[in-house]
């Protein structure tokens, strides 16, 4: 069975019987605060930072990071979303999917430091697609990647610049990120994969 892209977290899965939390709400908040400080430190003040979240949960994480950055720097940080559906390399493996919103901040990304934000880094294919999508929108000064969870098993030469938590996993395990904005609570669950029924998202 091919491990079909669990980069974007499987929200429909209800295998929570076996899933155990590895990050709780206070952990997530602390981790995001740390990442925000790292961004400020590395970008020397985060003057030209633009945060782009990858739907669905990356967008909420990007907004939370933007709030933290605003607290630290005292300036509002442009934040947007970048839908990568049309750039996926596995489009033809499944029925056409619904698109999510791409929302680029008014000043654009040209010459800026774009920080892509996603919930789980897995195969790296989502980020590859995001880089392609970004190339059609503008030419950033640099692109960095922030993820809440890095679960390993990369299939492409991609790594994250800011990692909330490294969680070593086996391919049979699933990592599910739940955020208050979408799921009603903040948590990261580690569970065992059910037998995958094809064509399910």
């Amino acid at each position: 069975m091919v491990p079909v892209d669990t980069d974007t977290t499987d929200s429909s899965a209800d295998s929570s019987g076996a899933a155990r939390p590895v990050l709780e709400a206070p952990d997530i908040a602390r981790v995001l605060t740390r990442i925000a400080h790292e961004i400020v430190e590395r970008a020397k003040g985060a003057d030209d930072v633009v945060l782009l979240g990858i739907p669905t949960r990356g967008v909420y994480l990007a907004r939370r990071l933007a709030d933290k950055l605003a607290e630290i720097t005292g300036r509002s940080i442009p934040v947007g979303s970048l839908d990568i559906t049309m750039y996926r390399d596995d489009l033809r493996l499944r029925p056409a999917r619904a698109l999510a919103r791409t929302d680029i901040p008014a000043d654009g990304v040209d010459g800026r430091l774009v920080v892509l934000v996603d919930d789980v880094l897995f195969s790296g294919r989502t980020i590859r697609a995001a880089l392609d999508a970004l190339g059609d929108i503008g030419r950033p000064r640099a692109v960095q990647l922030a993820v809440l969870v890095d679960r390993g098993h990369r299939e492409l030469p991609i790594r994250a610049d800011y990692v909330g938590k490294n969680i070593p996993t086996s391919l049979r395990e699933t990592v599910k990120v739940q955020l208050a904005e979408e799921d009603g609570r903040d948590t990261v669950l580690l569970g065992l994969q059910r037998p995958v029924t094809s064509g399910e998202q």
């Binding site: 839908d83 049309m86 750039y87 489009l91 619904a98 698109l99 999510a100 919103r101 791409t102 392609d132 059609d136 929108i137 503008g138």
Partner: peptide, 22 residues
């Protein structure tokens, strides 16, 4: 669904590169 998808497609027309590889 078609109307919502078209709404996202309409945004492509505002971009410098009006093309998707899909």
């Amino acid at each position: 669904l078609i109307l919502d998808t078209a709404e996202e497609m309409a945004r492509v027309a505002d971009r410098p590169i009006k093309k998707l590889p899909t």
